[in-house]
Design a protein around this nucleic acid. Structure first.
Lengths: 205, 205
DNA sequence: CGCAAATTTTACCATTTGGTAAAGGCACGA
DNA sequence: TCGTGCCTTTACCAAATGGTAAAATTTGCG
């Protein structure tokens, strides 16, 4: 018999926790951790503030829950990178998946960016245990491709950094991009074309 | 005779305003606008809170002053890009200058990143009047180089975005980079080598 | 020096904000 | 239908925070 029975969550619990997290993603990604208030989250969720605190122990727990949930989604495109596939196709596929995510999940991108920007105070453990091993593994895969002569040799770590930077830029700096690309309606397609060219030319032997 | 005499600032005024701005750069870049408190800034500056408010009208004015001052420094590397120089040399020089700035002025980079990340609420005018014209001008220069066959043709706007993204990444995501590059002591040099290769290969016809 | 202006400190204040206590309402199985 | 336990609301609170008033002190200049 289980000592601490986790009690399967009720229908109402699932719905409300989900409402809260969705609202919190909106608010945290727009204002940052300190800039967000429980009142804002409560209003966005359509619940009262004490009710929010009935489902989560506090502001920080909401933030950490969001971060943990999103980590999986965030790393998925890199997990998908297949050591058995065609090297250039795999890398370009990774670029495209990351760019798609920046366009489809900009709030998530900004939430992470804000957290890292401030020194990852609530995410340091996850960087160490979740990201680092995956990063090292995929760097080794890319290095092996280069050693085998299938890709132009460059530093795999900085290659990955540049993929992250260029793709996430469109979500994290959207306010700037929007001003500079005003009157351009093919921005997303142009970005994909450009980045594909950029990394193709770098890596094609 | 001048209607509103701006009165040249005293020695004490120059020193204290400078102390405050230096302290505020530290605090704002680390915690964001909302996360920073006047008490923190006051302590970092070695002044009392009311004294801070003797020199600035409020928290927001300090932040805006910082942003305005830094704008010039921030745009300088792009201003320096010379339409009369050798195209590839000019672009690679721009990349190197931006990368140097990310290493030497990480606080400034993070301050801007945080502001843009939250939709540039206190900087929208400057983006429009300061950045946009310069951006358009330099895009035209690069486009002319490409039209003349001196560079491989790509979208100049996305080229500039990718230069910003890749260089600033080392300042803005330093917390992440540090975890992933632990035990690497040549990070700065490796980054410069990688980025030079990246943009050389893209743009060399 | 002597004194007016500039600077700094002390003592506050109003608002915002994360959080709590406890009463009330509601759902659902026996 | 009735009551038990889950859910929600009302009414708060203490701390933090941006900001102010005015007294006290220092600075610089004739």
């Amino acid at each position: 018999m289980p000592e601490d029975l986790p009690k399967k969550p009720s229908r109402i619990q699932r719905r409300n926790r989900s409402l809260i997290l969705e609202a919190a993603l909106d608010v945290f990604s727009q204002h940052g951790y300190r800039g967000a208030t429980l009142d804002q989250i409560a209003e966005a969720a359509g619940l009262s503030k004490p009710n929010i605190l009935y489902y989560f122990d506090g502001k920080e727990e909401i933030h950490v829950t969001l971060l943990n949930q999103l980590m999986e989604t965030w790393l998925d495109p890199l997990v998908t990178l297949d050591a058995g596939g065609d090297p250039l196709t795999e890398i370009l596929g990774y670029v495209r998946r990351k760019l798609d995510m920046a366009h489809e999940l900009p709030r998530e991108s900004r939430l992470f960016a804000g957290e890292i920007l401030q020194g990852a105070p609530r995410m340091a453990p996850h960087l160490e245990t979740g990201l680092k091993p995956l990063f090292d593994e995929k760097c080794a895969v890319i290095q092996a491709w280069m050693d085998a002569g299938h890709l132009t040799p460059v530093d795999p770590r900085h290659l990955i950094f540049s993929i992250w930077a260029t793709t996430q830029h469109y979500a994290d700096f959207a306010a700037q991009v929007q001003v500079l690309l005003r009157d351009t309606d093919s921005a997303q397609h142009d970005a994909e074309t450009y980045l594909t060219t950029l990394f193709s030319r770098l890596l094609t032997p």
